[in-house]
Amino acid sequence: MATGWAGDGAVQDQIDATVDDAVARARRQLKHGPGLTRCEECDAPIPEARRRAVPGVRLCVACQQAQDEQEQGLSSINRRGSKDSQLR
């Protein structure tokens, strides 16, 4: 079924690109190597259990949570809004 200028698989291509971007972003955020014993932000001790569970950990739970909340607020990409106009 023709949908204007968009090809038949345009919507699925958009979904695939969004998922691929999210996976790539998550992989870039993964830490590698040994974790720190003290938080690099507040110098609080990082428990051994957290260091085993999260390879390459650099922040305590409180600082990691604050960083995650800050990054979540910065993520304002609206891929769907920018491409929907092209699909119509």
Rank of each mutant, 00 (worst) to 15 (best):
Q64V: 05
Q12P: 07
Q86F: 08
G7R: 06
A6M: 04
G4Y: 09
G81I: 13
V19D: 05
A6I: 00
R79S: 14
P47G: 00
A6G: 05
L74Y: 05
R25M: 09
G73L: 11
D8L: 10
Q64G: 10
D13S: 14
G7V: 01
A44P: 10
R79K: 15
Q70H: 12
A44V: 11
Q29C: 09
A62G: 05
A24P: 14
A10L: 00
G73P: 02
P45F: 13
V61G: 00
A44N: 11
A6N: 06
V11P: 00
Q29S: 08
L74N: 08
R25I: 07
K31V: 01
G7Y: 03
M1W: 13
G56I: 02
G9M: 06
S85W: 15
E48S: 10
E71N: 15
Q86V: 04
I77S: 03
A17L: 08
R58G: 02
L74R: 14
S75H: 14
A2S: 15
A26C: 12
C42Y: 03
V54H: 05
P34S: 05
P45Q: 09
R25Y: 08
Q67V: 02
T18K: 15
D84W: 15
R51W: 03
C39G: 02
E40I: 09
S75C: 10
Q65L: 07
E41C: 06
G7F: 04
R80G: 01
A2C: 14
R25A: 06
G35C: 04
R51E: 00
D8K: 12
R25T: 07
V61R: 06
A66V: 02
S76F: 09
A17M: 08
R27I: 14
Q14M: 14
D20N: 08
R50V: 02
A10K: 04
A62S: 08
S85L: 11
R51P: 01
G81A: 13
Q72V: 05
A24T: 13
H32V: 07
N78P: 11
R79I: 13
H32N: 09
E40S: 09
V23D: 09
Q12M: 12
I46E: 00
Q70R: 14
S85M: 11
L59V: 04
A10H: 04
G33A: 11
R88Q: 15
S76T: 06
L36W: 07
D8R: 13
Q72S: 10
V57Q: 02
R27D: 09
R58D: 00
Q70E: 07
C42M: 02
N78E: 03
V57Y: 03
R51A: 01
C63N: 03
Q12K: 14
S82D: 11
R28I: 14
A49N: 04
Q14H: 15
S75G: 10
A6E: 04
G56Q: 08
L30T: 03
V11A: 04
S85F: 13
T37F: 02
D21V: 14
V11Q: 04
V61H: 01
A10M: 01
G35W: 05
G81E: 11
L36F: 06
D20G: 06
R28F: 14
N78Y: 10
E41R: 08
T18R: 14
V19Y: 12
L30W: 10
R25W: 08
I15K: 03
A10G: 01
D8C: 08
T3M: 13
G56D: 07
C60S: 01
D21C: 15
